[in-house]
């Protein structure tokens, strides 16, 4: 059970104060800078990247870093810098899809579970127990393998293992505010369940869910990269960082740049998300402020 699911409400002034705190934390700023840079690079990839990420040029294969190719080239003569730049798009797409879908599904189920309680709650929570009973990566691998190796299936697998976390967070939050006055008032006024859930309860569940989501982003990136590294994620010629390291492995001894730069990109991205996530948690949950 997570420590921050018990109640607190968010108001405008609190958000403003939170932003002020974010500004004052240096590490959080580093995290924010990394994430902003990632988004900028992803959006403007076609303008930033010096070459196409998939265009092969056999004459230029396995060239060390140089002015023309700052990160060197891979075994098909593709520019690694351009592939790393385009890789940010793949990574962001995975993040948005996985977090978006898990957030949607998990929050909805959590809402239903917490609001209705009883056997609905019992069933949903037992189901989420089951998913949490597997180490995440192993289950994701098994699902991805069963569906067939592709990036889309890896995303499906990740959604399948991730939704219970959001369901639990939301449920806890719902339980804590279900009986609060304004909900009771709305119910007394004859509002429908759907309306109460969406208008009154959901807005008050948002912030812990957001905290969970920002904390999860780093892990999503790592899991996706690991799935691709093992071969259950992105397929060629997609410039996915984990897949690039996987192929570059066979060039480790003589061509160090092949694995170095995509790996570094994963490390920095995950670090950015983690720093930002820690900061967001500290800000939105004043109860527990544990710095890294």
């Amino acid at each position: 059970m997570h420590w921050w699911i018990r109640g607190y409400a968010t108001r405008g002034s609190e958000w403003r104060r939170a932003l002020g705190r974010l500004w004052r934390s240096r590490l959080a700023l580093v995290g924010l800078a990394i994430v902003v840079a990632l988004v900028v690079v992803a959006v403007f990839a076609p303008w930033i990247a010096p070459y196409s990420p998939t265009k092969i040029n056999l004459r230029e294969r396995l060239k060390p870093p140089s002015v023309a190719h700052p990160f060197g080239t891979d075994d098909a003569g593709r520019d690694i810098l351009s592939r790393v730049i385009y890789g940010s798009r793949v990574t962001l797409r995975i993040c948005v899809l996985v977090v978006g879908l898990t957030l949607g599904i998990g929050t909805l189920l959590g809402l239903i579970s917490g609001y209705f309680g009883g056997w609905v709650d019992e069933v949903l929570m037992r189901v989420s127990d089951v998913f949490l009973a597997f180490p995440a990566l192993i289950l994701a691998m098994a699902i991805a393998a069963a569906l067939g190796p592709s990036l889309e299936n890896a995303i499906v697998a990740m959604v399948a293992i991730w939704w219970p976390r959001y369901a639990r967070v939301t449920r806890g939050q719902v339980l804590s505010i279900r009986e609060i006055d304004f909900v009771a008032a709305a119910r007394a006024a004859g509002a429908s369940s759907t309306r109460i859930m969406l208008r009154h309860i959901l807005p008050n569940c948002i912030s812990p869910v957001v905290v969970q989501a920002t904390l999860d982003l780093g892990e999503v990136v790592l899991t996706a990269a690991t799935l691709s590294f093992i071969g259950f994620g992105a397929q060629p010629p997609t410039p996915e960082w984990g897949a690039m390291v996987s192929v570059g492995r066979n060039f480790l001894r003589d061509y160090w740049w092949y694995t170095t730069f995509p790996g570094l990109a994963i490390l920095i991205t995950v670090m950015g998300f983690n720093l930002l996530g820690d900061a967001v948690r500290d800000i939105l949950d004043p109860r527990l402020r544990r710095g890294p």
Binding site: L222, F229, V245, R249, T259, G263, I266, L267, V270
Partner: peptide, 9 residues
């Protein structure tokens, strides 16, 4: 934040 496979390499 470290990808295990990369650290191993």
């Amino acid at each position: 934040s470290m990808p295990i496979f990369w650290l191993g390499l």
